[in-house]
Design a protein around this nucleic acid. Structure first.
Lengths: 348, 348
DNA sequence: TTGTATGCGTTATCAT
DNA sequence: ATGATAACGCATACAA
């Protein structure tokens, strides 16, 4: 059995005894139509189950599709899901549809998705860059007026609009919070060193230390890009001479791993602040203090940029920084042990 | 500054001194082209930055877009995100692009999204129905051969393909697990009563009780559609005469709320099994035993159905049930208290 | 108020 | 091996 042909404007027009153009007028509320004609057209539309073909319309009208392409590293990650949701609800009123693809953090997947989206003539392109991608090939698109926005991490080799969390300031605030509660041996457990977010957050960590006059100690910086790696880092950090009394976990994998590592060691006395909120943060004991990002706001900011660009705003590339917010819940307010095993230095 | 016109096949053809059709042949590897001509066309394509217009191609070729429309209730929910990811990676090789919209659990949003997708002439439509929607209006589409698949919950008023978790059997297994560890007072905390998944899981709960010869007790069934409601339910269940010694939390909001409620009461002796896994399940103390769903497999199953339908499979609507898996982690293996406060019945 | 001619960018069909 | 022409479904510009 073959696919039934769908009714077109011409079909509707023939049914009524008018021209396609008249049907078009009815459909788009464009130009004058006699009330009676309009009624007959509407009836015929219902009878034939007519639905306008958006592809044909867009092609005729603008050579630009009414879709926005979004490339994210992982659809299962609620952070990006919420970003996408925030974006979608902000552009919906404008009739834009979201096309999403997942790059799986692979530069070549990202590139192929971008090609697909460009081939569809998306009205705008939004990319969360994967680790080692390069975006110089998008220069012409941007020059041609395609709204092009990078999320969470900036573009590589290209000046373009960008929306990021206040990584540095957020991390600074989180670490300052720990310092304010008396800690001076504060560990940093973060992403792979190459990642933009890790670098920014590490800068914020160092800012906070510097403000408090605490010397930076390389041995307190660990990498935990997954649960197990972070848990292992915790064991090292706490097993060292002059161990950490507090841990700043610079992303939510790290935070989860840190919590897991502490639980395995049976330690409930180590202060923890995480970057990025977790759904179960308040259920943990102690509840997890975090520097929360606002993924929905990131999506909305991107939407605002996209719509401004679509409206012809030609200003130079701008970077929007979305604020983070410290949420104290318990784990970040634990004090350091009374007398840390701080070996008194006895000069002889 | 106006948008720069993009190069078309005709532009490329003129540049080389051939016809658009020849360029088309090169682009699609269709029909014979002289090696030299082909080379010159490729060069011109690069020079002009030509990218084929998928909209025009799809319109000409099939009147079917190479996209699949997916309607989910909430993009920020990792369950649906992972479903979408599983689907996308399974259809990618076939050149299908995913279009996603979020219904926010509202029937009218769902309907308007479906209209948009149909207007785009999606190649297939996948819907996670919101609570009170009706799908009879899709009958004609389905009859016309549009692959139409419902996820997580069945369609309302329409026989169509459907992919669901093994809700009933999964719940049965989870509750049987608790029974196997000695519990007989097992509470059920679930969604709003109207929801399909709640009903199915409640059936499974009753199946397990029946198997073990335990009478169903209405007072042990509670509704917790958000954290606080579930936490409050826990207080009621444990405060009652003859209180529950174990809780089956029938979705992850309920599970989170139950954990929160127990923590607030300082209770660590109540066994808990959750339906649907949580990212932090193993970090909790005790780690949370769950009946895990497999969202990626659900997405893949949907993809398989879609592709079979696109390949002309005309069999009647089928329902695919994706198995769940019990993951014991600690909370579900807690024994009931030695002598439950079971008032001995002394006949006088 | 309605119709006609034309074109968007591509491919199908039939020629050459 | 390549070209000419028409057509996909719709909207623009203008005419009637």
């Amino acid at each position: 059995m073959s696919k039934v042909r769908r009714a077109t404007m011409t079909d509707v027009a023939r049914e009524v005894g008018v021209t396609a153009k008249t049907v078009s007028r009815v459909v788009n509320d464009d130009g004058p139509v006699a009330a009676e004609t309009r009624e007959r057209v509407l009836q015929a539309m219902r009878k034939l189950g007519f639905q306008p073909n958006l592809m044909a319309r867009n092609m005729r009208v603008g050579a630009r599709d009414s879709t926005v392409g979004l490339v994210i590293p992982d659809m299962g990650n609620p952070f990006f899901g919420t970003v996408a949701g925030g974006f979608e609800s902000a552009v919906r009123a404008r009739g834009l549809t979201l096309i999403v693809g997942s790059s799986e953090e692979a530069a070549d997947r990202e590139r192929s998705l971008i090609s697909t989206f460009l081939a569809r003539r998306v009205a705008a392109l939004i990319v969360v860059p994967s680790a080692d991608s390069d975006h110089r090939h998008l220069r012409d698109e941007r020059a041609a007026g395609l709204p092009l926005i990078f999320l969470d991490r900036p573009a590589a080799g290209l000046r373009a609009d960008c929306v990021v969390s206040s990584n540095r300031e957020g991390a600074r605030a989180g670490v300052a919070h720990l310092i304010g509660h008396g800690h001076r041996r504060i560990a940093f457990v973060g992403d792979l060193p190459a990642l933009y977010t890790r670098k920014e957050r590490l800068l914020g960590y160092r800012d906070a230390l510097a403000e408090a006059g605490i010397a930076f100690d390389r041995s307190l910086v660990e990498t935990g890009h997954d649960h197990e790696a972070a848990a292992a880092a915790v064991a090292r950090l706490l097993g060292a001479r002059d161990p950490a009394t507090a841990i700043f976990a610079a992303n939510n994998f790290a935070a989860t791993g840190v919590i897991l590592g502490l639980a395995r060691l049976g330690r409930t006395d180590v202060a923890v602040v995480g970057f990025d909120d977790l759904p179960l943060a308040e259920v943990l004991r102690p509840a997890l203090t975090v520097v929360a990002q606002d993924p929905a706001a990131i999506g909305q900011a991107a939407a605002k940029l996209v719509m401004a660009r679509l409206d012809g705003e030609r200003s130079r590339a701008q970077t929007v920084v979305v604020p983070t917010r410290l949420i104290p819940r318990g784990s970040g307010e634990l004090p350091p042990p009374r007398r840390p095993a701080e070996p008194e230095h006895h000069p002889r």
